[in-house]
Amino acid sequence: MADHPSTFGGTPLDTDEDAWEDRAALHNKASSDGIISGGNALRRGTFAEMIRHIAMLPEDERRDYVIEKKGDREYSAEEAMALASRDDFPKA
């Protein structure tokens, strides 16, 4: 997750590191009109905090949200829930 390239056209390193402390933002998919930007973030914090927030939502509401993580990678609610269930996911 943390292995995004640091240069234009660079190749990501495969360190197999999960960067739970990377900066992230929670977005409502409907209000973003398909464009996720820092200006329409509902909440900001670490990647782990945003995953925890989605996990606390009622199951039928989760699909309305996405997480944008440092490096411009977006995670769906389904991906967030899969990450939250991992053994190495940090507990609060």
Rank of each mutant, 00 (worst) to 15 (best):
R43H: 13
H27V: 15
E78P: 00
R43G: 01
G9E: 00
M56P: 00
N28G: 11
I67R: 01
R73I: 10
E74F: 02
I54A: 01
S32W: 05
R52P: 02
E61I: 02
T46F: 04
H4M: 15
G71H: 09
L57W: 00
E68N: 15
N28R: 14
L42A: 12
L26K: 07
S76H: 06
G45T: 10
G38C: 01
W20P: 10
D33T: 07
D22L: 15
A48F: 05
P58T: 04
T11G: 04
H4D: 12
A24L: 02
D64K: 08
Y65K: 05
E78R: 12
E59L: 00
F8L: 13
G38S: 04
A19K: 13
A48V: 06
L42H: 12
R43I: 04
E74S: 08
R73F: 05
M50I: 04
P12I: 07
R86D: 02
E74D: 03
H4E: 14
G39F: 06
E59F: 00
T11C: 07
D33Q: 14
A82K: 05
E17T: 14
W20N: 11
A48Q: 08
E78K: 14
S32T: 13
R44S: 09
S76Y: 00
A30F: 07
M56N: 12
H27R: 13
A24R: 01
A84Y: 06
R23K: 14
M50N: 01
D64S: 05
W20Y: 15
S85L: 06
I35P: 02
I36D: 10
E17V: 14
I51E: 02
A80Y: 03
R44I: 10
G39R: 08
A30E: 12
Y65I: 02
K70W: 08
P12N: 08
A2C: 09
S32M: 07
D14P: 06
G34N: 08
S6D: 14
A80K: 03
I54S: 02
A19M: 12
R62Y: 03
D60A: 05
A25R: 10
S32I: 05
H53D: 05
P5W: 10
S31A: 14
I51L: 08
E68T: 12
I36H: 09
S31K: 12
E78N: 08
E74C: 09
D64I: 01
R23C: 09
A80V: 02
M56T: 10
A24W: 02
V66I: 07
K69F: 00
F8E: 10
K69Y: 00
Y75F: 11
I35M: 13
S6I: 15
L57Q: 04
L42E: 15
R52Y: 00
E61Y: 06
R23F: 13
G10F: 14
R43P: 00
L83P: 02
G10H: 10
R73S: 08
M50W: 02
V66L: 01
T46D: 03
A55F: 00
I35Q: 14
T46S: 11
I67V: 14
E59A: 05
N28L: 15
R23M: 10
M50S: 04
L57H: 02
E49C: 03
G34D: 11
T11I: 12
D64T: 00
A55T: 03
